[in-house]
Computed example of a mutant assay.
Amino acid sequence: MAKAAALAVTTGSAFSQGDHPRWIDLVFLGRQTMGKKSLEIEILKLFKSQIEIHLTQLATLEDGAQLRVRLHTIKGAAHGVGAIEVGQLAAKAEKELMTNGTVQPGAIDRLRQALQETANFITDLLED
C-alpha cells in the first residue's frame, strides 16, 4: 500500500499524467476514509470483490430491468470509492437505458473493460 500512499499524495485528480486514466482517485478515497490507510485497503479489497461480481452478472443479465439495477449499483459504488471513469460509464449507460430502453452498442463492453482495468489497478496498488 506504500505505492497507493505515494500516489495519493502526488495527485488530486482522477487522471494520472500521460494517457492512462487513474482508475481510483486516491485523494478522494483518502478524504472519504479520513486518511486511515487500513480502511482504504479494506474498501479497495471490497470494491475489487464487487467488481468481480459485477463482471459476472453483466455477462448473464437477461432483461433491461436487471441491467438498470446493475448499472445503478455500479455507478453508486464506483462514485463512492473514487472510481470516476467506471461511475461515469455506468451512469451514461443507465441514462441511455432509461431514456431509450436500450444501451448504445459497445457501452457495456466499455464498462466491462473499465471495471477490469480498475480491478487490475487495485491489484497493483495492494501488491506492495
Rank of each mutant, 00 (worst) to 15 (best):
H54G: 05
R31M: 07
R68V: 03
G64D: 07
Q17P: 04
Q116S: 11
K36S: 11
K95W: 08
K92A: 14
L44K: 06
D124C: 05
A4D: 06
D124E: 14
P105L: 03
K37I: 15
R31A: 08
L125F: 05
G82H: 05
L125I: 00
A8R: 15
L39M: 04
L46P: 02
L115V: 02
T10Q: 13
A90C: 03
H72Y: 12
K95Y: 06
E52V: 04
L29D: 01
L126V: 11
G12M: 07
S13W: 08
H20D: 10
A119T: 03
E62F: 08
K45A: 06
V86Q: 02
G18F: 08
I122W: 00
T56V: 11
D109Q: 15
Q57G: 01
A59V: 13
Q116L: 07
L55F: 03
V69R: 09
L7F: 03
A78P: 08
L26R: 12
K92M: 10
T99Q: 15
A83F: 04
A93W: 04
K75F: 06
Q88R: 09
L39V: 12
A114P: 06
Q113W: 03
K48Y: 09
L115N: 03
D19P: 10
G76A: 10
L67Q: 10
N120S: 11
Q66T: 14
K48E: 13
A83Q: 11
E52P: 00
K95T: 13
D25W: 09
A83G: 12
D25R: 07
E117H: 12
Q116N: 13
V81D: 02
Q88M: 03
Q57M: 05
G87T: 06
E62Y: 11
I24D: 09
Q32K: 00
Q50E: 07
I74G: 03
G82I: 09
H54N: 10
M98Q: 15
N100Q: 09
T102C: 04
K36I: 11
Q50G: 00
Q57H: 12
A77H: 07
A107L: 01
V27N: 10
K36W: 11
I41V: 12
L55H: 03
E62S: 15
I43H: 09
I108S: 00
P21K: 09
L61Y: 06
R110T: 09
P21A: 12
T118M: 05
D124I: 01
L126T: 06
N100H: 11
D19T: 13
R68N: 08
A114I: 14
M1Y: 01
A59I: 03
M98F: 08
S49Y: 02
M1C: 01
E96Y: 03
L46N: 05
W23H: 08
D25N: 15
I51H: 01
A114F: 02
M98S: 13
Q116Y: 12
D109H: 08
Q113C: 05
N100R: 10
A90I: 07
L71G: 04
P105K: 10
G82E: 02
A93Q: 08
L39E: 15
V69C: 08
I43R: 04
H54P: 07
D109A: 14
S16V: 09
E94R: 12
K75D: 07
